[in-house]
């Protein structure tokens, strides 16, 4: 293990997050078991009060999850010099087999926690706790993931040995090394990927606008927003990063959050994560439109979420386009690596 302040901070955050979530999930299960809205028993009153605790805890966990996602990448980046051959996060994440799974789970958990908050917000608008059981089932689903994430993260950090020869982003995300998903994504030709990105984005945005204005096609939009999330990540690795780094061979999704690139990555990823959470959240709420106590309000909430999602994706696209246009890199021909 490497004793580094940032690693300690990471582990601390993830233990605290897991602990809080388990605590919340425990009461969530109590609620699932004993909930009876018509009762005026003290038990019911206690459970209703617990819902406040759980939503407070979950909002904190959500915030923590977002911050720790970035902190995690930061740490991975800062540890680069300790490992032979690792120059940035891409290399350090590869130090052992737990790095990338942790990162992927972190992203997944962030989205799940966000969806839970969306559901919670909608539930709080109804006077009879219409979604309470669904909400706590979802919580019960999210909790194990966060625990697994914590376990993986612990293994990742505790299993680190300085001076291990690892690959850096130069070889991992370059197409010389034809193994692994990373390099396969990187090997995708930049231009077609950009075309795909813009076309899917156009479809997503217009579908979102349609869903917002006509209140139809919400499910399609939710699906598209998830697809768009994946396509955007792909595009960042295989094409957009090239324009930001102004290097035709540097495919790294992590370096863009570094100081050298004016922290542009934060904005990009925040918009992207925000877009996918709100977009999927709108789809998540759609089945409950007909619930009596939510009927008058839910349409508005879904509309707002859709709008937020569309705006964030649009802003993301605008930012990406600006980066591409202002970049001095010109991919005028198909680069054959």
């Amino acid at each position: 293990m490497i004793l580094n302040p940032t690693i300690i901070a990471n582990l601390l955050a993830s233990y605290i997050g897991s602990f809080m979530l388990l605590y919340a999930a425990y009461y969530g299960v109590q609620i699932l078991k004993h909930w009876n809205i018509d009762s005026g028993d003290e038990l019911q009153l206690v459970l209703e009060r617990k819902t406040y605790l759980i939503s407070t805890v979950l909002s904190y966990v959500f915030g923590l999850q977002l911050l720790s996602l970035f902190l995690f990448i930061f740490t991975a980046d800062a540890l680069g010099p300790l490992f032979v051959g690792a120059m940035c996060a891409a290399g350090t994440l590869n130090v052992n087999g737990f790095g990338y799974p942790t990162l992927e789970l972190k992203i997944l958990n962030f989205i799940l926690a966000g969806l839970w908050l969306v559901l919670n917000h909608a539930d709080n608008q109804g006077y009879d706790y219409p979604l309470i059981k669904k909400k706590y089932w979802l919580l019960a689903v999210v909790a194990p993931f966060i625990v697994i994430e914590t376990v993986l993260e612990s293994f990742y950090f505790l299993g680190m040995r300085a001076n291990v020869i690892t690959s850096c982003c130069g070889s991992l995300f370059s197409s010389e090394n034809v193994e692994g998903l990373g390099s396969e994504i990187a090997a995708l030709p930049a231009k077609p990927v950009l075309w795909t990105f813009y076309l899917t984005m156009l479809a997503t945005l217009s579908c979102g606008a349609f869903a917002y204005l006509k209140r139809r096609g919400g499910y399609v939009y939710a699906g598209l927003s998830l697809l768009m999330f994946a396509v955007s990540l792909l595009a960042i690795i295989s094409a957009i990063s090239l324009y930001i780094y102004e290097l035709p061979t540097h495919h790294c999704p992590f370096c863009i959050i570094m100081e050298d690139y004016q922290y542009i990555g934060y904005l990009l990823y925040l918009l992207l994560f925000g877009g996918v959470v709100t977009g999927m959240g709108s789809g998540l709420l759609l089945p409950f439109r007909e619930v009596a106590s939510l009927k008058p309000l839910l349409g508005g909430i879904i509309g707002k979420l859709t709008l937020a999602s569309v705006l964030m994706y649009a802003l993301f696209t605008a930012l990406v386009s600006y980066e591409i246009l202002s970049s001095s890199l010109v991919i005028s021909y198909e680069v054959v690596y």
């Binding site: 300690i8 901070a9 601390l12 720790s68 970035f70 902190l71 930061f74 800062a78 100081e259």
Partner: peptide, 12 residues
């Protein structure tokens, strides 16, 4: 001083 240190401190 960089963002990493400040975030770490925040977390700690």
């Amino acid at each position: 001083v960089n963002a990493e240190q400040l975030t770490t401190l925040f977390f700690l």
